[in-house]
Each structure stands twice: as C-alpha cells, then as structure tokens.
Design a protein around this nucleic acid. Structure first.
Lengths: 262, 262
DNA sequence: TTCCAACCGT
DNA sequence: ACGGTTGGAA
C-alpha cells in the first residue's frame, strides 16, 4: 500500500505541468524515503529529476517499493480537476493497475476520487549521480525565465560565462546580439543573485531546452544553475513549502562550431 | 397587442444564450398569464422549457394569445446590443410579422429599437407535464457546471447516484475513472448542496447534453436536479430577480450496455 | 467534429 | 494575468 497526502495539490500540478513538455511518460519511483522521477526527455537530450522526500508530505506511507508508470499529460489533466487549496491524497494498492487521486475540499463536503490507469514504460532506470560543480549561480526564477525568453529572440544558443565576480548570459544571431550581466547583490536575500565559483566556466546551451525547463518557474522563487566545464548543467528548482524536495533538469552543453573544428 | 417590459435585459439574453446551442428555432407562446417556450432540441433528444410568469415582468399585457417564432441565434445577436441593466420592452402588434425590441438605458436618455422578423415553425406544441420526483438535488450551479466539464474528460456518460446521505457523480473512460461525492452542508444556505430523497436512484446521462444545459449557469446561483428511476432528469435554473420563472431542461437517461442486455 | 488561436471577462 | 469562451480552420 502506498499512500501520500499533500496539503497543497498545486505543487504536484505545477511539477507535472513543468515536465509534460519534456517527457510524455514517466516512472514514479516510490519507496519508504519518498518519491522520485528520473527521466530522459522525449528527444533523449536532457534529463528530468524530481525528488519529493517523505517529509514533504503531510502523511506518507510506502510499505513496499513500487514503480508507477504515468502519462504526464493525463496527470496534468487530472490535477487540473482539483482546486488549488484542495488536499490531495495519492493511493496505490499493491499490484493495482491504477493510481488513485483523492481531492478533498478543506471543509470535507466535497470529495472527488479519480483513478488513473497506469502504463508500463520500458525505460532504463537512470541513476543520476549527485555531482559537485565549480560554478553555482542562484537567481530569481522569474528573472531566469525572462532572460531565456528574451535571448531566444536572437538565437537558440545561450552562452553562460561565470566568474567569481559576475555571470554573463549572451547570444548572437542574425538580427544582432544580446548580453545580460548579473552581479551578486549586496544585501543578499533569497531574491537576489548569488555566485559560488571555485573555477570560472564558459558554456553554451540550447535555449529551446532552457525555455522548457523554465516552465517550472511557478514552483519556486529561485533557481540554481550549477556548472562545470565538460559537465552537464544542473538546473534546480527547490520545491517551496514542501519541506524538502526539488525538481532538477540536466542539459549537456551545446556542441558549437568551435568544438567541431577540434 | 402584446407588450412586456423587463427591467433586466440580461436575463433574457442569458436565457437565449443558454438555449441557442440546443434549439435553433423556438416558438414563444404568449398568453395573459405569461410567456413560455417548450421545445425539443435539434437532435430530438432533450427538451427545453422556459416559463416567465406575467409577474416576472415589470409591465405585462397580452390581449390575445399568440405564437412568436424566433431564431434563437438572431435573438442572441439582438440582445447583445443591449447593456446588462437596460430595460427591455418587447412588443408585438397583432398580426405583425415582426417582434419589436426596445432597449432603454436606466436614465432613459438612450432608446434603441430593433425589429426581428418572425419565422414560422411547424413544430408540435409540446405540453411538458409537471411531474414529481423521488430524488431532488439542489446545488450551486457553478459547481454543477464545473463537475460536468471535469467529468467530460473521462467519458460522455455521467452516472448520478442519489441516496438520502449524499450524491455521487461518477464516470469511467479509457484514461481512468472519476467520482465526486457531495454531502449536504451543515449550515445550509442557498449556496450549499441539499438533498430531498424519498427513494434513492441511480441514473446515467449524456455529458454532452448536460454540458449544454450548464450554459444556463449565469442565470442562477443554484440548480435543481430532479430524478426518478425510469423518468427523464429535470434540470431547473430558477430565474433570479424575475419574480417567478425558470428555465428547465429534460433529458432521458442514457441507454447503457446493461439496458441493451435486458 | 475536433483542435487551435485570438478575444474578453474576471 | 489567468481562465473561459468563442470563432475559425483542419
């Protein structure tokens, strides 16, 4: 028996809304310590990682490990049926072919129960390793989204240069070029830009994917970009108000013409 | 001479907006006690019944009974030309081929007059009988609309189970199944769910039609679902602020596979 | 008929 | 700014 109660159904909806553009089917891995998703996107370019610790739930019970195959669009459809402040209870009976979503109004006078048929997904169970990075940029998530949207006007490649002093996002295309430099703010609160750089780096990424990742903006006020030379970017949205948890995206640096000449 | 003045033109517009999806042409039956419409929808599956008692009007005069054939879409077009709080005066001169709509701003500083050509509709004049029902559910109209829209995600069939304790709406489709249970609220105001059940019932209806009926939601805060086994559903939207009147829909229960096996 | 895009109302 | 509705196109 797997049973997990979230007091805020909105988080779950936003998580699936954020990843539905990337992956159509995912395996929800449930064990006693929490719930995770690790999936390659449909075009096998980027990775998505969700981690919801058991403490992120109001109530959590998972007697036996299980893998729940879900169609992300169907999950989004279903989660749209709950109001933002409804409580959400997920339930899976051992060996059942469906996952049950129960939405309860705060007053309890309305209880909706929806059953989603599980699907079987043959996908390599990824084990995304925890890695350390030489450059870490923390910034407001909406600012990152805006930046990626704006830069996409010029080209699909975004260059990110991080030094210990600042971070520079730049792009160049036929209609011109753009560059945005962010410096850490003095009175650093969580809303500000922060840098943690042991080794500067300069990497180029596809804006198409970054813009897809940025769909997760509603989940968190801040986003963390972790980079090292010759390592994929890790983009992390901490899940606020859920105790501990995060949604992460991984993207290998874009192969540019310079690389090809090597 | 037929002359009827409504202080609130919005009601009339909403009524016609609600039925224009179901019936393209209707006969407006006018007699000394008020105005009624009784019509079968275009596909001859459901019935629409409008009743506006003479007292629903600010002024009402109907010397001679008459049947005014109207194209519902044209009426909607015309009623869009009046503001929500305009007074509406309907006038029909005996034997005239048109119905006159006069819109007057509250201050009376603007008077618009429109003439709508009547059409002749050969349709059996229905006499929908007043019936009694074993299960009556009253609930907020917007909640009913939401429910029907949500359930349509799963399938076109909505099962309604009413007991003396609660009402359960459920559906089942390829992507899963859904069920919403409503219980009467304790501090029951007009916004709440109320049940009046002498005999429980369990019926299935087409969500396509229910969703069409739910277009009437703006007319009323509450909706009344009256059911008995082996009898069509009666869905009633009381016309608020119009003294006495209502818009009703009737829908026979959907024939399911179970029935066919009988 | 169903899906998508623009427009409007909240 | 979002959700809903409506109109048009496939």
């Amino acid at each position: 028996m797997f049973e997990a109660r979230l007091s805020n159904g909105g988080i779950l909806r936003k998580v699936f809304e954020a990843i539905t553009n990337l992956v159509s089917d995912v395996n929800l891995e449930c064990n006693e310590s929490g719930v995770t998703i690790q999936a390659m996107d449909n075009s096998h370019v980027s990775l998505v990682g969700l981690y919801l610790k058991d403490t992120a739930f109001e109530r959590y019970r998972c007697d036996k490990n299980r893998t729940l195959g879900l169609n992300t669009q169907n999950v989004v459809k279903l989660l749209k049926l709950c109001s933002n402040d409804d409580q959400v209870l997920l339930r899976h009976d051992d060996d059942s072919e469906s996952l049950i979503f129960i939405f309860e109004t705060p007053g309890g006078d309305r209880v909706s129960e929806f059953e989603l048929t599980l699907i079987s997904i043959d996908q390599d169970s990824l084990q995304i390793p925890e890695t350390s990075f030489s450059s870490v940029v923390t910034m407001p998530s909406n600012e990152f989204q805006r930046l990626c949207r704006d830069m996409a006007q010029f080209s699909d490649s975004l260059s990110i240069d991080v030094t210990s002093k600042n971070v520079r996002f730049s792009t160049k295309g036929s209609l011109g070029s753009g560059s945005i430099i962010l410096r850490p703010k003095e009175g650093a609160d969580s809303e500000a830009v922060a840098l943690d750089v042991s080794e500067p780096c300069q990497l180029v990424f596809s804006l198409r994917y970054l813009n897809n990742f940025a769909k997760a903006t509603p989940l968190s006020n801040s986003v963390k970009l972790s980079m090292s030379e010759n390592q994929p970017l890790e983009l992390e949205y901490p899940l606020e108000g859920s105790g501990s948890g995060h949604l992460r995206f991984y993207l290998a640096r874009k192969i540019t013409e310079d690389d090809e000449q090597e």
